[in-house]
Nucleic acid binder design. Structure first.
Lengths: 150, 150
DNA sequence: ATTAATGCAAACGGTTTGCACTACT
DNA sequence: AGTAGTGCAAACCGTTTGCATTAAT
């Protein structure tokens, strides 16, 4: 058995390799590069960004391979995507705890919103409408302290 | 003077015409069509959608004109855009009150979130981080009552 | 040997641009 | 007459696809 059943996140390169192989999928150099890049980013990155960073490691990186692998990783629950300020897709590793994102329109900064922080909202919506919030898809846009409207 | 100073929203075709002319901008047939369509939609519509609906009225509608006019209308504060489930741009008229959106991943349904409903969240973020939420850019994704995970 | 995955190149969809022309004021 | 706005066509960007080839198992 593995050291510990990961709660779903992409914790290490080895975990990704194991997860893929466990499903009869293959572990390739290209996938290794992408997984490394995704892990190193531990934030929110667009597909195009990921391609660039992969190319920094392997200049021969191909878009189709990256996108296809991202799809695969998402199916395995190792990464997830949401949408950024410009509406573009953004990928991020699935961390131990589900969380939302905070984006500043001024500086472009990004922070996590913990479940506890969003609880007031999620509970309000559940109570009043029976609506279940997908926290990891939640992006709150606005202005951070430093970029506040004077 | 106008009947009533609109609080910013796009209420009628005439209001749009007046707002444009007040800035030395022009009122054209194409703009009239788009404004009619946007008003009729009173929901969230993508740019592509708007183009289609405009074409239903005027088959000669051109994408560039629509997008350019949407930009103009947004500058005037008559419409605003946010992002949908797929990350695509969605336009909507600026209603009297600022509000967020609720989107169901299951059925694609869309509802408004009133300021009061989101207040718990906005206040929490303001208090703890000095972050000012842009409510009209807020889209909460999840599952509605009917589409709830069994 | 099997078949998953890659690389290429082309297509895609929505949006944006440059430029000459049109038409609102 | 003056200039904002239009229409066209081409470019753009990130993403997706088909297909023949390569390589992990």
């Amino acid at each position: 058995m593995s050291p510990a059943e990961s709660p779903g996140g992409l914790a290490t390169v080895d975990a990704a390799r194991d997860a893929l192989r466990a499903r009869g999928l293959r572990w390739t150099p290209q996938r290794r590069v992408l997984v490394e890049v995704v892990l190193a980013a531990h934030g929110h990155v667009t597909g195009a960004e990921l391609i660039d960073r992969c190319r920094a490691i392997d200049p021969d990186t191909t878009p189709s391979t990256v996108y296809r692998t991202l799809d695969t990783l998402e199916e395995l629950g190792l990464v997830q995507h949401s949408h950024g300020l410009d509406g573009g897709e953004e990928y991020h590793t699935l961390p131990a705890s589900e969380h939302g994102h905070l984006r500043c329109e001024g500086c472009g900064g990004s922070w996590d919103i913990e479940a506890s922080e969003a609880e007031a909202l999620t509970r309000a919506l559940t109570d009043s409408r029976g609506f279940t919030v997908n926290l990891s898809h939640l992006t709150v846009v606005g202005r951070c302290k430093g970029c506040s409207p004077t």
